[in-house]
Structures are given as structure tokens and as C-alpha cells.
Write a protein that binds this DNA or RNA. Sequence first.
DNA 1: CAGTGGTCTAGACCACAGG
DNA 2: CTGTGGTCTAGACCACTGG
Lengths: 233, 233
Amino acid sequence: MNSPAFRDWQSVREEVLRRIHAREWRPGALIPSETDLAREFGCARTTVNRALRSLAESGLLDRRRKAGTRIAAQPVAKARLDIAVIRKEVEERGQAYGYRLISRQVGVPPAGVSDAMKVSPSRRMIHIYAVHTADGTPYAVEDRWIDTGVVPGALAESFVQLSANEWLLANVPYTHGEISFSAQAAGAQAARALECADHSALFVIDRLTWDGASAITKVRLLFGPGYTLRTQV
Amino acid sequence: MNSPAFRDWQSVREEVLRRIHAREWRPGALIPSETDLAREFGCARTTVNRALRSLAESGLLDRRRKAGTRIAAQPVAKARLDIAVIRKEVEERGQAYGYRLISRQVGVPPAGVSDAMKVSPSRRMIHIYAVHTADGTPYAVEDRWIDTGVVPGALAESFVQLSANEWLLANVPYTHGEISFSAQAAGAQAARALECADHSALFVIDRLTWDGASAITKVRLLFGPGYTLRTQV
DNA sequence: CAGTGGTCTAGACCACAGG
DNA sequence: CTGTGGTCTAGACCACTGG
């Protein structure tokens, strides 16, 4: 009538999932302690801990010392998005990747950019405007500012062959980044680069990359109509 | 000259991060085995394993049995998005949440929906059209289909007070889901519900929720201009 | 076939927070 | 104060896969 032995943490995880799904343990309910479950499952507490920790990371369980473990009442879906280098993204779709630099200049960025990067409004940076293509058709437009104070090496790069995206990844260490997603109507310049109608709804990814307290680069990627970012939960 | 003792997995993680960042270990390089690191750090191999596993999950390391552990050459940014219930999302912004049902009908969904849900094109479902508000202004429009064959209980719900979103979460167990993000121009109906201009660029979240092999519901959320989804990497 | 990561165990101590 | 999860240890076996 009872458990046919749970030998590894994944099978424990499965069993717990089953009980949640079968409503044996209802949302908000307190489940037995690790020690009790270990006894019931006939395995070490460490193994139970591994399984429960995994489920907590997925948002299905709420765990607190002394308070115990509860089934999350309103599980927050944790979507994991893998933001790869654009070249890889295109190649994984089985398409031929292409890159074309439209302009590369040194100048003072708009206030929005210098603010976000937390530098003086008069700070001079490299401005890159480029387009990434898939099988020859425009895939995404890249609008990037690079702080030459933080990355002096960028001044020597033309970014004609190698995109700033990949050059930075290979040459400049970073500590963390902020990413945001939004929608935006295509302006004239973007519409031309993406070969789409003016005011088309574009998918936008903004990324700000830091090395400690210094902003390295801020990039805005505009994706043409039809672009979709997918994930599993 | 050497390590002031690394007692827990988080400090080991910090040290490995430091070495990657300082380029002591370059992208693509093979790092010492867990056993060697454990000896160097003066801790158990388990502890090193925990730290390296954590970094591998973040995409900074590539690990393979026998082949060893390498610094990822092109780290894939793993963005973690927390998709909460809309009500919570609004409340966390410090705004007052509101919900208004626009229509609730039973009928046959468009082919795109029945295809995605893998049911017969003639399958009858509940169709919900509703708007979520923040401080009285439209925040998102919900366009949802619920398979009554899978969730018969939904037929008894009016969804006037409680959004389908929350009712389903509380009452219907699911096993997994697919989420996708895109941009789309506002149609007439959406523009009216969101009180924005026709053809405005809207941020779109599509979610398809499964219970094993049966699709429970498919929902499309349209967010008004200015909406941004943020995350850290 | 041998080296590496993946995992399990039993026991221990600790940090935290509920009562 | 006490119960719970969080973690560390030392040792062991195993699975995978490169050479």
C-alpha cells in the first residue's frame, strides 16, 4: 500500500508533484517536514531537501524555517528566458545569419541613455547602429552606446565584421545586467532598416550591462513584426 | 598568499566568479576538477559541487562528465521572469487593482486556438473578454478560451467578480505551460478596451496551459502602450 | 577504460523564526 | 525555547563519455 521506495531526488520530486496535482496536498496546505518525508520515502533527508528545494525554486512551494513547507497558493510562474547572442539565435532557427553595420560614430548620447548609465550627460560614447539578418531579411536592429571610459578598447574596433554584441561578450567582463521587454511603434529609421511599414508594432529588448558600478553598454534591439520570444513553464 | 578558507558554497561561488571576472580563468578554459578545487579551498567536494552547479545553472559554466568544467565562451543570459497573477502585479506597483468582464460567451474558437489546444475545430469553449485596470486606467486586456470538456466547473462560473485567471489558478491543477511574448498593433476592439489609439504598439503575452496532454486554457493578454517587463541577469 | 561530474547517505551543527 | 529548513562533511557508488 505504500511507496515502492524513492531512491533519488527526482523521483521524490515527481511524487511531490503528483500529490500537489492530485490535490492530496491542497494549495496553501502545510506538508510534512523533511525529516518525516525522508522517513516515509525511505531515503536521506538530504535527498528530500534537494527535491523540495528544486520545487521551491520553481515557485510551487513556499519554505520557511520553523514555519515549514507549504504548497504555494498562487504559484508565480517562473519563466526562464535564454537570451543568446543573436547570431546563435538565428542559426538555431536553421537560417543564415548576417550582420551589417549602418553607422558607427562617437558622440554624446541622449539624456535617457546617460541617465540610465549613470554618467555625466556630456560623456562621449561610441554609438553603433546595425542590422542583423536571417536568410538575408532583416531580423533585428541594434542601437547601442558603449562607454569608452569603461571600455577604451572599443575605440580601436570598427565593428564592421564582428558585431559589438559578440566583441563585448568575448572581451569585456561584466558582473550583471538589466533586461526589459516592451513594444514600440517603428520610427522612420527603424522601419527602413527592418524593411517594414512605418509604425509597425516592434518587439523591443533593452539591455543595460554593468561591471560593478560602471555601466559598460546600453543596447536596444528592435525586432521586426512577427518576432516571438517563447518559453516553457 | 592563499585562500583564507572557503567555508560555504556561496563563498566558493564568489571566488569562482572573481576568477572568471578577473580573467584568471578565460572564456572557454578548463578549470580544475571538483576534487582539486575542494582540496585547494579546504572544503568538501559536495560544497564545491553546489557552487559550480549553481554557476552552471546561470549559464556561466559548461559542465560535462569526464570532459570537466569549462568557462562558457558565450554565456547565454538566463533571464528569470516572474509571471504573477495580474492583480498582484498591479498591487506591487502600489496601484489599486480593478477587473471588469466585458463578455462571456460559449462558442467555437477560431482555428488558431483549437489548433494550438489540439482539439477538434468544432469544440465548444467558454470565451472570456475582460479588462484589468490599475488605479482605474486600463492595464491589460484578457482574451481567453477555456475548454469546458477539461474544466466543466467553469460553466458554473460567471467570472464577473473573480477573474478567470485567479479562478483557474485556485481550482484547476495544471502540469505545464507555454508562454510567448510578442508585439502587435491594437485592433479596434482592443484599442477601445485599453483606451488607446488604434494601431498602438501593444505588448502581448500568450499563455497556453496544459494538464498532461489536455489543454486547459489559452489566454492572450494585451498590455497598453508603455508597459515594460523587467528582469535582472 | 579511466576520469569527471552526479548523487546518496548518515550524522552533525547552525540560523532563523514561531510560539 | 524549540522545531524547521539550510548546509557541511567524509565517504561511497554510479553514469556518462572522452580518449
